[in-house]
Design a protein around this nucleic acid. Sequence first.
DNA 1: GGTTTGCGGATATTATATATCCTTAATTCC
DNA 2: GGAATTAAGGATATATAATATCCGCAAACC
Lengths: 162, 162
Amino acid sequence: MILKSQVEWALHCCAILAGLPEGRYLSTKALAELHGLPKEYLSKALQSLSQASLVDTTLGPSGGYRLARPSSEISFLEIVEAVEGKARSFTCTNIRENNPCRPAGYCDSKPCAVARVMWEADEAWRNTLRRVRLSDLVGTLSEDVPPDIWRDTFEWVLKRAG
Amino acid sequence: MILKSQVEWALHCCAILAGLPEGRYLSTKALAELHGLPKEYLSKALQSLSQASLVDTTLGPSGGYRLARPSSEISFLEIVEAVEGKARSFTCTNIRENNPCRPAGYCDSKPCAVARVMWEADEAWRNTLRRVRLSDLVGTLSEDVPPDIWRDTFEWVLKRAG
DNA sequence: GGTTTGCGGATATTATATATCCTTAATTCC
DNA sequence: GGAATTAAGGATATATAATATCCGCAAACC
Ligand code: FES
Ligand code: FES
């Protein structure tokens, strides 16, 4: 079980978008260059964010992406699910049905106990991500990253923002 | 991100092994037939359990698998990690290093804030699985499964246990 | 009108999961 | 002792998913 690298990309891109001034857009090209990522493939991740209505887009030379909502109203989980999908990590293939001791046509009243535990763990994972807001991430980053690098980065970004 | 189906197989097999009388073994063949699984491939999952020291094995016509410890001392997490691996679901590829505004040779003091949140969620997932014992699963199953099917199944198993 | 941009489809490449086959050594039963 | 059965591990094949690139389209800007 391994998450796509697009999850890392999307989260970092959203953190950058969260620092954009009101109404400005940042292009795939700039985001790819800033993070050293393949532009075409990063574009797929950003399209996922767009389809999930987490970002707004606009076309043309000064176009690109911006957050659709304030960063305090976007959760980690929304970003992760946008690129990774909402499907649970554990899928039950109902192997209990193959038990030769089961009467033919017997129908289970509940999902299997094994699956229920695995899904509970999945929920715990999602709940952790649900509780973290994008604005929390930006706050932590601004503490971790040295002030001069932080400032230079947003200067770099603003120079390219449409 | 999707767990291997071997996780479902291993958990169900362990639940069966937990019901074996002291000192008896159950073969791959029987476990595969009981769950309707490909014998050769299920064998790989059972080998993983063996390598993790969760089960004991013995060779020969009456050989097979049994739990290495009481089911109350085996957690869901141990079984899941045996087949799925202990690696975290999120891997940081350090894309922050590609930021062109970073001075050459700059070294981060902490893991990235994005990764820390993802790893925290991963820990929440693992903690949920750590708290559930194999004996808990057997207890739940014995409540869910109708008594006659439950009894027939273990009769079926005992007929094949070495 | 030429350029830039996001978008979606098609395609190629790589890695992983799934599955089978075969050999070896240990154990049981006759 | 010999035949049958079993787990273990290596080699290999197939299917599916992740990664990556390319192209054409329509909207927006100059
Ligand atoms: S039958 Fe799928 S988890 Fe039990
Ligand atoms: S650089 Fe990997 S998660 Fe931030």
